[in-house]
Structures are given as structure tokens and as C-alpha cells.
């Protein structure tokens, strides 16, 4: 039987959740034995080459490219998992929700303290650039998500336990302290 295929991506996130994947330490050797990686920053495969079993999504959607990538993941992954606060709730990037985009642009490119180099007072509008969404969306407001792993970032043990149980089909053992932070 062929190995389960895993894909991962980071949308509007900080890659902290991916760092947390690496935090499974030496178990990563076991993971490589257990699964085959497809599209993922871990192996730098840029496009899907086949249908995958599991997709891990870090980050919510802040721009049009995020939406395209997320929809692509939904299409190519049988099970989609939201990894971490940003994917589940929008996280820190969602702090801009409620502020007019115009104001955000002005602060970032025209009026903010770091804009002195922008002598032409340009708000970037190259067609190559993705368009910002009106607000930062959690993943489940774009596509259906099957599982949610909370945390900022989710603990390595939580990621490990979840992956193992998804692969083996056994129920995950998730003690309180792995999923609750109060």
C-alpha cells in the first residue's frame, strides 16, 4: 500500500505553525517514513502533482492568492486541517479587520514612519500582486475545513498526535493541556 500523501501551506501566517511541525524533533524521521510529502514548503514542491490525503493549512486568507491556494488545497486534499489561531480565527493579521483598507494603505505606504523611501507616493498596484481582501478571513469562511488544531502555534505534540491518528485511523489522544491554554 502506498504511503499517505501530505501537503502543507502557509497563507496569512508567520510560518510559526510550520516551525511547530519541525518541533516534533526526531519524530520527523518517523513522519518521513509514514507519509509522502507533496506540495509543501518543507520540500519546496510548488504545485500539486497528485491527489493528497491530508492538507495542513497555516494562516487565514488576507489576499486573493491565499484564496486561490486554499481552494486548490480543498480540491486536492481529502482531509483539510486548519493549523493554528490564524487559520481558525484570522489571528493577528485580522487586527486590520474593521479598519478601512484605504487607511491601511496610507499607513503602510504613504504616512507611516517607514515610508520615506517611497518618494513617488505609490500605493503598489502591479497586476502581478495579489489583491487584498476586504478583511482577513478564517479558512472555514472560504472552504469547508475538516479539523481544527488550536494554538499559536499548536503544540508539536498536538500536530504529531493528530497526524498519527489521521494516518492510522485511531482516535487521537489529546490531553487537556495540549489543546487548552487557560
Amino acid at each position: 500500500m502506498s504511503k499517505p500523501v501530505l501537503a502543507t501551506t502557509s497563507l496569512a501566517g508567520c510560518f510559526g505553525c510550520h516551525m511547530s511541525i519541525l518541533d516534533i524533533d526526531e519524530r520527523i524521521l518517523t513522519l518521513i517514513e509514514l507519509v509522502e510529502f507533496n506540495k509543501s514548503p518543507i520540500n519546496d514542491i510548488k504545485t500539486f502533482t497528485k491527489q493528497c490525503d491530508i492538507g495542513l493549512i497555516e494562516g487565514g486568507c488576507c489576499n486573493s492568492e491565499n484564496v486561490h491556494v486554499l481552494r486548490d488545497f480543498r480540491k486536492h486534499c481529502n482531509i483539510l486541517v486548519s493549523l493554528g489561531e490564524c487559520a481558525i480565527m484570522g489571528g493577528l493579521p485580522a487586527m486590520r479587520n474593521g479598519i478601512l483598507i484605504k487607511e491601511c494603505f496610507h499607513e503602510a505606504y504613504l504616512n507611516g514612519p517607514s515610508t520615506t523611501a517611497n518618494t513617488g507616493h505609490i500605493i503598489p498596484n502591479d497586476p502581478e500582486l495579489p489583491c487584498l481582501l476586504d478583511k482577513v478571513y478564517p479558512c472555514q469562511e472560504i472552504v469547508r475545513i475538516d479539523y481544527y488544531l488550536p494554538g499559536c502555534p499548536p503544540r508539536a505534540d498536538l500536530i504529531w498526535e493528530t497526524l498519527v491518528s489521521l494516518i492510522s485511523g485511531k482516535p487521537a489522544e489529546l490531553p487537556y493541556e495540549v489543546i487548552k491554554f487557560d
Binding site: S64, N125, L133, D134
Partner: peptide, 21 residues
């Protein structure tokens, strides 16, 4: 499953603010 999300609608504001199609 339908979230009601509309990509074209949701980028309207930023495209207007940065003056692009």
C-alpha cells in the same frame, strides 16, 4: 457547504483604494 464568500466582491475595496482593475 456554502460560506457565501465572494472573491470579486471582497477585493473591490482594495482595488479601488490602489487604483487597479
Amino acid at each position: 457547504y456554502d460560506t457565501g464568500f465572494n472573491l470579486a466582491e471582497s477585493v473591490k475595496e482594495s482595488c479601488e483604494a490602489s487604483n487597479r482593475s
